[in-house]
Design a protein around this nucleic acid. Structure first.
Lengths: 317, 317
DNA sequence: ATGAAAGCGCTAACAT
DNA sequence: ATGTTAGCGCTTTCAT
């Protein structure tokens, strides 16, 4: 590929003039501008972005740290990020960690190496203490609430949503409620869910709580688990609509009725939940993703809460 | 951030020596290497990747052109790409086009600007004639079959799969079959589907074919469309499991039985199809994505076919 | 084994 | 208005 010098030579001007027309600066005569443009067209020239980014120190590119791809929740957020990135004219790089802390730090280092202007953390594997230092090299926005000064966030109020769900179930007469979670008490989601449970129903008994659930099949296994005791719960709050759908299937196949024998509430408002008429908590993760991108491109450290909505359907009575 | 000169000064060596230890070259004495390492650690130094990429002319980064995010099919491919990218140590940038040809060309230009080593095209908005020239600047791999020399591909045999589906339906006694598609005859998928239909059933009547379907709701509308005539089809081949699920719902709500009154076959083997016991064509798009990444990182122009599998469930009788 | 120096392709301050 | 020039931070000959 030709470079800026070749264009300059061919147009009979200096490289600065070429640079000026490239960056639409004023103070370039119409003739020279035309000559430069001609040379550019003739040689089909495009500036080398590595050189531009090197000298500018910015890339208009941001990264999205995501534990798993092909997970409804994270995909929604990523989708929101991508959607907004187009209108903000930023490029987005996906950084899948599988919750490997080393990998995550490696990705964060891309701020230091100047490859990324900012990073959105949808879910993290490291403690904040090892993440915060990277905020010195680029903007970091999280999809969870944090009081840290250096970190912006577009977060959902999972505690409030969960509290509302459990309170609703209680008001409907449910006293024995079970729930599923995805990844143990290392995750804030799980901790907040358990806290809300305690605040409404008291102690969390092992037989009413199952971790490690993400897929439809996990939901079926969870339902089997919840139903195997002599006393069975009368409602289940699943950590996703896929899981809820699995529970739904197993419950029906066990000859029980929904919601009469067991009420089910899911999360994320997925199509599968619509089909099965599942009540669901829509955390509006798409909007969270959009907001996260908006924040990170502005270098904002604002704390923005994304409101949730509960969509009541027949599965919860 | 410190740069290589500072490290050199601090370690009392030249920049070339620093560069050598950075790139694990031989011929560096143990003492100097240690001194350099100490300086690197003390200053918490990380090389600027823009500078490295500029001089090397490579980035170990590839782009994935994708029309829509949050579409089961494209998400599967993207997921496969990402999965493989981790083990191949490449970074992937998502390039959403919404089938805007201009946007797509803009993305392809990232090969010229040296930002990307290669690009995977999951689905395109431009003619090959305007895409091929970019192959001169970086590797291009498509997720559709093409004979073009310059383009590698990891493709699915949609015609064969569709032919098998229609032949199966015919063998089951279905003579009046409908189908849905996503985006008109500009898309190869649609063209291949129509071709297979003609080859098995003859003429494609407008009342047996509905375009613009991607979501569950589209499926419900499609079913309404197919059922409104006096004679209704006895089977529908949907272009995705979400669409098939919508059809499923509408058919049931219309008081008809599946598969007795109407057989349904979907595509992509999504969880929703598993729940509804939908027969489905699994095109193994995840594998296609993995293979595409493998090809593009190797600069290969091989043509690799990804086999499909039909998963028979009760919705097709 | 090590260093000096010439770039990679571009931007921008400075001079004219 | 336009050109000269000094970098941005790194790799890689080419000497020694």
């Amino acid at each position: 590929m030709a470079n800026i010098h070749e264009i300059a030579r061919r147009a009979g001007v200096s490289v600065s003039t070429v640079s000026r027309v490239l960056n639409q600066h004023p103070y370039v005569s119409a003739e020279k501008r035309a000559a430069v443009q001609r040379a550019i067209d003739e040689l089909d020239y495009t500036p080398n972005r590595n050189a531009v980014d090197l000298i500018r120190g910015r890339t208009r590119s941001i990264g999205v740290i995501i534990p798993y791809n092909n997970n409804p929740a994270f995909d929604r957020m990523l989708s929101g990020v991508l959607n907004k990135s187009v209108e903000e004219d930023y490029t987005v790089t996906v950084l899948p960690t599988r919750y490997d802390p080393e990998k995550e730090l490696e990705y964060l280092t891309m701020l230091k190496t100047k490859l990324l202007d900012g990073i959105i953390i949808t879910s993290r594997a490291n403690d904040w203490s090892s993440i915060v230092p990277f905020a010195g090299y680029g903007h970091i926005v999280a999809c969870e609430y944090t009081e840290l000064e250096d970190i912006g966030c577009a977060y959902i109020d999972r505690y409030a949503a969960t509290l509302e769900v459990f309170s609703f179930l209680k008001s409907m007469g449910h006293a024995d409620v079970a729930f599923t979670t995805a990844r143990g008490e290392t995750s804030i989601s799980t901790r907040l869910t358990m806290q809300a449970y305690r605040d409404v129903f008291g102690e969390v008994r092992p037989c009413r709580c199952l971790d490690g659930c993400t897929t439809l099949k996990d939901g079926m296994d969870a339902a089997r688990h919840f139903l195997e005791g002599k006393v069975r719960p009368t409602a289940v709050y699943a950590n996703g609509d896929d899981v809820a759908a699995g529970i739904h299937q197993f419950v029906l196949s066990a000859g029980l009725r929904i919601p009469d024998d067991i009420a089910i509430i899911g999360q994320e408002n997925q199509p599968i939940g619509q089909v099965l008429q599942l009540t669901t908590v829509d955390h509006q993760l798409f909007r969270a993703g959009e907001e996260a991108l908006r924040l990170v491109t502005r270098g904002s450290r604002d704390k923005v809460q994304i409101p949730y909505r509960i969509i009541y359907r027949s599965s919860s009575g």
